[in-house]
Simulated scan of single mutants.
Amino acid sequence: MTEGGGIVAVDKPRKWWPWVVLATLVVAGWAAGGRGHGPDAADRSAPPSATSGSARPSSGAPSTSAEPSASASDGLARYAPQVKRYATRAGIDPQALMAILYNEDYKPHDPAFQRAWQKLKPDAAFGIANMHKAAFDETKRGRDFAGRDWDELPDDTGLAIESAAWYLHDLAAQLPAHRSTSLTVNQLIALGYNTGAGNMLAFARGVTPGSQAQSYLDQLTSNWAAAGRDVRGSG
C-alpha cells in the first residue's frame, strides 16, 4: 500500500529476491550491533496511470491452512479463520480479503525483519496486510481496536487482519451506487487498497487502470480460487 490522500499504499515488488538481498543487509546490520524489525509492507507510492476508458474486470485466489503466525513461510491459509471472522464483522467478502493478503505476500512478514526494515525506511508499512500508519490510524477511529497502535501490527496478525477488513469496509462505503465500469466491488476495493481511495473512485467512473493497478488485479484473479478454498475450508 502507498499513502495517498490519507489512505494507505502497497509496495509493488512481487518477487522474493529483493527481500533476500535486504535480509542479508539487515542481518549484516544486526551483526554490526543494530536490531529492529521489518520489511516495507505496502508502498503504493506511484498512483496508476489513468486513461479514459473502461476498466477490465478481474478476481483473486490463495492456499489452505489454519491459525496465525508471523512467518510467511507458515502459509497464509492458516489465517483463514481470522480472515473469515473479521471480514464478516466488517461486512466484506472474506474471499476478497484473503485474496488481498495473498497479493500482499511478496515479502517476509517476520516481526523482527519488519522492524529492522522500518528503521531503514521509516515510511514502511507493517503487518501481514502491509498497512501504513496513516491508514491504520484513520481506520481504527471509533472501532473496538481504537486503543491499539500501528506498531503492534507485526506481532499481532489478528489486529492486522481486522484493521485491513475495516479499511476495505471503509473503501466500499465510498463507492457510488451507480458506477461506469465492469469491475466488481471486490475488484474496486482491492484497487483502493493498492492505489488509494481517489484512484478507486476514478476506476469506478470508468477510468482504465494503469499497468501497476492492472497487475494487482491480475494477481487478485490468480489468487481468487485458492482464497475461496481457504475461507470455505476454515469452518
Rank of each mutant, 00 (worst) to 15 (best):
162 E>N: 01
36 G>S: 11
26 V>Q: 12
162 E>G: 00
6 G>K: 04
112 A>P: 00
103 N>K: 11
144 D>H: 03
37 H>R: 14
113 F>A: 11
11 D>W: 10
52 S>C: 02
47 P>E: 06
219 Q>S: 15
234 S>D: 06
24 T>Y: 07
158 G>Q: 02
133 K>C: 05
29 G>K: 05
151 D>E: 12
217 L>Y: 10
229 R>Y: 11
83 V>M: 05
145 F>E: 00
226 A>E: 15
180 S>R: 13
157 T>P: 03
140 K>R: 13
197 A>F: 04
111 P>R: 06
10 V>D: 11
63 S>I: 11
15 K>G: 12
12 K>T: 11
162 E>R: 02
115 R>D: 12
145 F>Q: 00
172 A>L: 02
193 Y>M: 07
23 A>C: 14
221 T>C: 07
130 N>I: 00
59 S>P: 02
199 N>M: 09
157 T>C: 02
155 D>A: 05
49 S>E: 13
63 S>H: 13
65 S>A: 10
10 V>P: 01
133 K>F: 03
105 D>H: 07
167 Y>V: 02
101 L>Q: 11
144 D>F: 05
61 A>K: 07
11 D>F: 11
122 P>E: 03
16 W>K: 01
165 A>Y: 01
143 R>H: 05
150 W>M: 03
9 A>P: 00
176 P>V: 08
184 T>E: 15
16 W>N: 04
184 T>H: 08
78 R>S: 12
132 H>R: 10
51 T>S: 12
98 M>C: 08
95 Q>L: 10
112 A>C: 02
212 Q>H: 10
190 A>Y: 10
220 L>Y: 15
118 Q>D: 04
84 K>R: 14
215 S>C: 05
86 Y>N: 01
32 A>D: 03
66 A>C: 01
223 N>H: 15
126 F>K: 02
183 L>D: 10
221 T>Q: 15
99 A>M: 06
138 E>Q: 13
133 K>I: 10
101 L>I: 11
89 R>W: 00
40 D>L: 03
107 K>M: 01
33 G>V: 08
172 A>D: 09
44 R>D: 12
96 A>V: 15
169 H>F: 00
151 D>Q: 09
183 L>A: 08
81 P>Y: 06
3 E>Y: 09
93 D>V: 01
39 P>L: 13
231 V>D: 02
199 N>K: 15
227 A>K: 04
